[in-house]
């Protein structure tokens, strides 16, 4: 696992910061149905990188492709210098231990308490003694503001808490990269803003790199250092850069429609 050396305390990492993810010429297709083609981008260490776009443009597929769940029809993804689709066995497991994923619905195990959910990766992949594991798991839940709910089952907590618990479990092994799939979906504006604040907070204090898939405009502008935008019509990437600059200066009609919430 790559620990964070002097995490960046600035708002946005500069272009000189090395890339932790390099996606090159990615094409995703289900049979003859091409979702997107020739998508290339870099994600730099310590930044909050947002993948945005309208419904059905392939945002979640791109995320699954990056974490090794859906194979690309073409192209490659290097995570921390290793092609995720070229590694197998122990090397792939080592790579997977260096990324964390928060799923859209939390994907917590319903029969286990939040503490046990967070403890599970620690028990599986570390040699921490049991009392230490519990203490570390409590710290992770504390990081997302769920200390008091540690002994509750996922069925006993709200949607916003489920997402926070999902982040705590994704943080269990302190991965340098966290992938978040639609963190704000289905949440009220206040809970959503709280989650955005948490992502920024963790990014600043821990130096974790976040790759966030979302179409929530407020979240994109609140947390995103850089973003790419996918478009269903163009079947590919139509914009890349600072989301605030895209909002203010992009001349692409789909990008303008997205940021100005207009029908395209």
């Amino acid at each position: 696992m790559e620990p964070v050396a002097d995490p960046p305390l600035t708002d946005s990492p500069g272009p000189e910061v090395p890339a932790v993810i390099e996606a090159r010429d990615l094409t995703a297709a289900f049979g003859s149905n091409v979702l997107f083609r020739h998508v290339s981008f870099d994600v730099r260490r310590g930044e909050v990188f947002v993948i945005l776009g309208g419904s059905g443009c392939g945002k979640s597929t791109l995320l699954k492709l990056m974490i090794g769940l859906v194979p690309p029809a073409q192209g490659k993804v290097d995570i921390l210098g290793t092609d995720i689709w070229a590694t197998q066995g122990a090397a792939r497991l080592d790579l997977l231990k260096r990324i964390g994923v928060m799923w859209q619905q939390g994907a917590l195990f319903g029969s286990q308490t939040l503490l046990e959910n967070v403890e599970m990766p620690l028990a599986e992949h570390t040699t921490l003694p049991p009392d230490a594991r519990r203490e570390v798991a409590r710290a992770k839940l504390g990081l997302v503001g769920l200390s008091a709910a540690a002994d509750q089952l996922p069925s006993e907590i709200s949607g916003g808490m489920l997402k926070r618990a999902g982040i705590a479990r994704a943080l269990a092994l302190d991965p340098p990269i966290l992938f978040l799939d639609e963190p704000s979906a289905g949440l009220d504006p206040v809970t959503s803003a709280g989650l955005d604040e948490l992502i920024r907070d963790l990014s600043r204090s821990l130096g974790t790199t976040f790759v966030v898939v979302t179409h929530e405009l407020a979240s994109i502008l609140a947390i995103g250092d850089r973003c790419i935008m996918l478009d269903k019509g163009a079947k590919g990437m139509i914009a890349e850069g600072d989301p605030r600059e895209l909002r203010d200066h992009s001349t692409h009609p789909v990008v303008q429609a997205f940021f100005l919430r207009k029908a395209a």
């Binding site: 710290a139 839940l141 504390g142 008091a148 540690a150 002994d151 509750q152």
Partner: peptide
């Protein structure tokens, strides 16, 4: 950050 997390009230 972790000090704050550990200091949070527990069940």
């Amino acid at each position: 950050r972790v000090r704050d997390a550990l200091a949070a009230p527990r069940p």
